[in-house]
Design a protein around this nucleic acid. Structure first.
Lengths: 158, 158
DNA sequence: TGACATTCGTTTCGATTGCAACGATAAAGA
DNA sequence: TCTTTATCGTTGCAATCGAAACGAATGTCA
């Protein structure tokens, strides 16, 4: 027990690294446009899917449902997102980017990609590939664990 | 811009994996003893250092200073930690584990280690080593970045 | 010695978080 | 059809969070 070292504990290692990277990245879109992490994820997802429900964003962007709801509301207030009640099913809302939303995302994306590139450049091609494979194997352990939180669909390799 | 895929974005990948692992691990000490992540880190650090100030825990366990303060107060209220005003320097407090704190940690630790072991077992020795090396290289990128948040001392290889 | 700056731990404050209801709509079954 | 069940998005609430401000104690330099 007294020989236990937090710094070599894998979950801790991952948490520290991930948090540091997230914080640095958040500066990129936070300072320039006041965008938060959840907002960033919603914008990015909408750029792909063109149109999505709260449920979909929740499932794909790894955000709790209430958080998606509030985030979308905020983005709508900022004019970056449009909400339309579903035609066939009036329970769900069709969420999509506005012109402004696309513009803002277009301004943010280059810096985000440039930052990621700096990270990836620090790794050899082999390391990068193994990094992905390792992540996949760790996810697999949790997939087999009934107590582990479910994996969001986006992250599940088809 | 429309070809950007969040799921392959390295910072996102790391965040998702790390969060999932953290949540699962938190169940281990949360369900059995009502211990939260910050409390877990403080306990673990104290088990090593036997005695520490708020500042030290802050620097080594990657927790904000106010958070350490509150966490320690809560642990003290629960009888797991002892706080004594410093002898020479009465600004700092000497924080240490009580009997109860050691007992609780002793009950939590095996499950935590067993969980980590399940993760590590999923990796080959080579993968495990490379995982650490990759983390180190990514940290190095941030170390060179003036805008990146500082790295806590614990995680800095001597 | 006295004025100033620094460090330590705590507290305050506004914002964010997750979880658990909630109302509204739609689907399923009797 | 009518009742029941499930789904969708929202809201309430209590806890937590980080950043800044704070008082207390020490260190520094004239």
């Amino acid at each position: 027990m007294e020989s236990f070292d937090l710094s070599t504990f894998l979950p801790y290692r991952l948490a520290i690294l991930s948090e540091r990277i997230s914080r640095r990245l958040a500066l990129e879109y936070g300072r320039s446009h006041g965008i938060s992490v959840p907002e960033w994820r919603v914008l990015v997802h909408l750029a792909r899917s063109k149109q999505a429900s709260v449920r979909e964003i929740h499932s794909y962007a790894n955000l709790e449902k209430p958080r998606v709801s509030r985030t979308v509301a905020k983005l709508q207030a900022a004019g970056m997102v449009r909400k339309v009640t579903g035609k066939q099913d009036s329970r769900l809302v069709e969420i999509s980017l506005t012109e402004k939303g696309q513009t803002v995302l277009g301004e943010i994306l280059p810096a985000a990609l440039e930052f990621e590139d700096r990270l990836v450049q620090a790794l050899s091609a082999e390391e990068h590939a193994m990094c992905i494979e390792i992540a996949e194997k760790l996810h697999a352990v949790l997939d087999d664990d009934p107590l582990a939180p479910m994996r969001s669909q986006l992250d599940t390799p088809d």
